[in-house]
Design a protein around this nucleic acid. Structure first.
Length: 224
DNA sequence: GATATTTGACCATC
DNA sequence: GATGGTCAAATATC
């Protein structure tokens, strides 16, 4: 489990900041439901800023541990293959590591919307018992910024068109999605995988409803 | 020429 | 050995 890399103190901090974010979100929802309440001393923009700050701090804690984990992987790789620089082009043994338990987010959608990130296709594969091939994408900034985000897109239905998009890891690149492209496109109420859009008041409630529930550390699955 | 996509081969895991 | 994920050369596009 990834949580083994976090100390009890880290978990407590993360929980505290998420709970604070939840409370701020709850207040924001109240203000949206009752716009007249906005006349108070706290503006919605302030709340949004605080919520974003809370999430950023949480991610900062999580990523600081990821970095140490990555550095360990790099170190072990160098140790095991440091003298193998002259290996032939054909010998790609150990050149990549198959992921085992990365954080995943699965979304089923009828339209392949632009999620605001730059993706680069690196593979396509026919999957057993699947009618359509699976497409593999990685973040464009994988190499220049070390972003670990990957996604797979697979058509699962022809008519109406339905795609299953699976995200692995999250973006660590500094190229944040354009706000106008952040689409809250959850096709069904059951679909808990949503993108945050602060630009459209029509979509506030969906995200807010998701956030006001109990926050469990193990359930973290944000998309940025 | 730079960048993105396609596609067959390679490799890890089960 | 089968399957799925990734690499990297070849090719396409701008």
């Amino acid at each position: 489990m990834e949580s083994e890399n976090y100390t009890q103190s880290d978990l407590e901090k993360v929980t505290e900041k998420l709970n604070r974010g939840r409370e701020l979100t709850r207040r924001l929802r109240e203000m949206i439901k009752k716009p007249e309440a906005d006349a108070g001393d706290v503006l919605t923009e302030d709340l949004v800023g605080k919520i974003m700050s809370s999430f950023c701090e949480t991610l900062s804690i999580l990523r600081s541990n990821e970095c140490s984990e990555v550095s360990q992987i790099v170190k072990s790789t160098e140790d095991s293959s440091g003298s193998c620089k002259t290996s032939s082009l054909k010998d790609r043994r150990g050149r990549y590591k198959r992921r085992k338990t990365l954080e995943t987010t699965i979304k089923e959608t009828s339209t392949l919307v632009d999620d605001g990130h730059a993706w680069r296709k690196y593979g396509q594969k026919h999957i057993l018992n699947a009618k359509y091939p699976r497409n593999y994408f990685r973040c464009t900034h994988k190499f220049d910024q070390g972003c670990e985000a990957n996604k797979q897109v697979q058509r699962i239905q022809e008519n109406p068109p339905l795609f299953r998009v699976t995200y692995y890891g999250h973006h660590t690149c500094k190229t944040f999605p354009k706000v106008s492209q952040m689409i809250c496109d959850s096709p069904t109420d059951e679909d808990s995988s949503v993108l945050l859009n602060f630009n459209s008041t029509n979509n506030h409630h969906h995200f807010l409803d998701m956030m006001v529930g109990p926050v469990e550390f193990a359930d973290l699955s944000f998309q940025f």
